[in-house]
Design a protein around this nucleic acid. Structure first.
Length: 288
DNA sequence: GAACCGTGGTA
DNA sequence: TTACCAAGGTT
């Protein structure tokens, strides 16, 4: 039993944010929706989209009945709209293969579109109370600092991280689930990437990084995420036109949204391939 | 393993 | 202003 458990569990009880997908009434479907939306998108921006989404499609069955385009439009500006397509496809699989209920096994969750190692463990833990290794960016950062004594974790999850997290995971499922969400919340609210609030941290006394004098990250910096002028930027501009349009749009409307001809063609093709856009007759375009 | 996939807030 | 970051997944 680690010295980290009790302080983190107690801290979570008094400091956890009240979030709709954490309510006792939240369904496994709600948890799954929240996890997809939260992939690389901050909580504050997810909240309104999540509420609207769950009002519109309270179950996987409801979403499966809707068109992909409706899902993409409801995704709004959360970013990475392929996640909306994946969530819609996941709903279809849930209806077809799981009688409309979000599966509880890690393997079945992992098989859903858009559900990777982290999301499968998160849903199994948060929605079903299982003992799972929930290794997101927050948990990885907290463990890197508190246990490994370094400012930031490696670029990708390492086997050493999995072993460490596994060692720290309480044996009792309910406690393990509480620990998982607690460490994650601690990383989100206190042990943040840029400016950790060590004065408010419940485990400063056990923190190796603090003990070592807060050594700065020495490895290579993360690759800068340039955006202006990239294909992501162009795709966003093109899709934005279709998202805001009530009717299919003409080719000239898309041409006006991104002037660089070659890049526009490449991105439009990739949007079609990704299932985010469909081409209709007379060279008109719309959401699927 | 690394590149790619949106968007907006913060320092 | 540029750089970094945000509950990752897929190829």
């Amino acid at each position: 039993m680690s010295q980290l458990h009790a302080p983190v569990l107690a801290w979570y009880q008094t400091h956890a944010r009240s979030l709709p997908w954490r309510e006792p009434s939240a369904s496994a479907w709600g948890v799954l929706v929240s996890e997809l939306m939260l992939q690389q998108t901050p909580v504050v921006r997810v909240l309104p989209a999540y509420r609207q989404w769950m009002r519109t499609w309270p179950t996987a069955g409801h979403l499966a009945e809707a068109s992909v385009g409706e899902a993409i439009r409801a995704w709004g500006r959360l970013g990475y709209p392929r996640r909306a397509v994946r969530l819609h496809r996941a709903a279809t699989v849930i209806v077809a293969d799981h009688d409309g209920e979000v599966p509880s096994s890690l393997a079945e969750l992992r098989a859903l579109p858009g559900v990777g190692e982290y999301t499968a463990a998160a849903v199994a833990s948060f929605a079903f109370g299982q003992r799972q290794l929930v290794l997101d960016t927050n948990v990885r950062r907290v463990l890197a600092r508190a246990v490994a004594g370094v400012e930031l974790p490696a670029r990708t999850v390492t086997s050493a991280e999995r072993e460490l997290a596994g060692t720290l995971l309480p044996s009792d499922p309910a406690t393990a689930a509480g620990w998982a969400v607690g460490v994650m919340e601690l990383g989100a609210l206190v042990c943040s990437a840029a400016s950790p609030a060590c004065g408010a941290c419940p485990i400063t006394a056990q923190c190796r990084w603090r003990e070592l004098g807060y050594p700065a990250h020495d490895g290579p910096r993360r690759r800068a995420q340039t955006y202006a002028g990239t294909d992501r930027h162009a795709r966003g501009a093109l899709l934005g036109v279709l998202r805001e349009a009530a009717e299919p749009v003409t080719r000239s409307r898309l041409d006006a949204a991104w002037t660089h001809h070659e890049q526009r063609e490449r991105c439009l093709t990739s949007l079609l391939v990704d299932g985010l856009v469909v081409r209709l007759a007379h060279d008109r375009y719309s959401l699927p």
